[in-house]
């Protein structure tokens, strides 16, 4: 039996809103250790992985591992019936008494999970999630791709389009900066990657979930954009860089 209860439906709504542009159908793999999801977009250029920890739920019971294939648009439609502070219960198997009861069809989705090594990255930048979202949105009005470069001084975003170029540089802040404004850099060597802006803009739908975003980069490897949720662990987005032929 699987039974998950969350007293703030708003959190689940925000998680869904942040992933449903990228992926239409996905398997939620539930186990005693938590609910996880890994899915690629249809072009297999971007990927997301999500972990919802058991202690993030008010009630979490998962007697056996279960994979729930769900259409994310349908799930979002159902959750729209709940207010942000309503309690939402997801159960598979026997139902219990509830004030309202929604049933949703599960789907069989064949998915192959990729093994993502927890290897170190050449540069890791933490910056305000809202600032990253604004930069991606602004640059998206000018170009299709952005070159993100990290040096020990800061992080630079450069784009080129029909109407010319745009360059935004965010300097690393001092250690005393307030958390919501802080920009920190851990770096082994400078890294520069060229990325499709439309995917980055889609990743920033997760901005309401976290104050800060962590951007991990290594030369020639997918960039990782991670949002750490306060009570629910994390959501990570991966994007393959563009390479010069």
């Amino acid at each position: 039996m699987l039974e998950l209860r969350l007293t703030r439906a708003g959190l689940l709504k925000k998680v869904l809103e942040s992933i449903r542009d990228l992926v239409t159908d996905a398997n939620f793999d539930c186990a005693a250790t938590g609910c996880s999801l890994q899915a690629m977009d249809s072009s297999r250029v971007a990927m997301l992985s999500l972990l919802l920890r058991p202690d993030g739920f008010e009630h979490y019971r998962c007697d056996r591992n279960i994979s729930m294939g769900m259409n994310l648009a349908n799930m979002a439609r159902m959750l729209r019936c709940a207010s942000d502070d309503d309690t939402v219960t997801i159960n598979a198997d026997d139902a219990q008494d509830k004030i309202s009861d929604y049933e949703m069809k599960l789907m069989h989705i064949t998915s192959e999970n990729l093994e993502i090594p927890e290897a170190g990255y050449e540069a890791i930048v933490k910056m305000p999630a809202s600032l990253f979202a604004r930069i991606c949105k602004d640059l998206g009005t000018i170009g299709d791709t952005v070159m993100i470069s990290v040096t020990k001084e800061g992080i630079q975003f450069f784009t080129r389009g029909d109407i010319r170029t745009a360059n935004i540089f965010c300097r690393k802040t001092t250690p005393v900066a307030k958390e919501k404004e802080a920009i920190s850099i851990e770096m082994e060597k400078p890294v520069s990657l060229t990325l499709a802006l439309r995917y980055l803009i889609s990743f920033t739908k997760a901005t309401p979930l976290a104050k800060q975003v962590t951007i991990s980069m290594s030369y020639g490897r997918p960039i990782v954009v991670e949002y750490k949720m306060e009570i629910m662990d994390h959501i990570r987005f991966y994007l393959v860089p563009k390479v010069e032929e």
């Binding site: 690629m40 072009s43 297999r44 250029v45 971007a46 990927m47 192959e112 999970n113 990729l114 093994e115 993502i116 090594p117 791709t145 060229t194 499709a196 490897r221 997918p222 991966y238 393959v240 563009k242 390479v243 010069e244 032929e245």
Partner: peptide
């Protein structure tokens, strides 16, 4: 010229 690689070029399937 830019080329776009896919995710499985970097990670292996479980």
């Amino acid at each position: 010229r830019e080329t776009q690689l896919r995710m499985e070029a970097f990670y292996t399937f479980n």
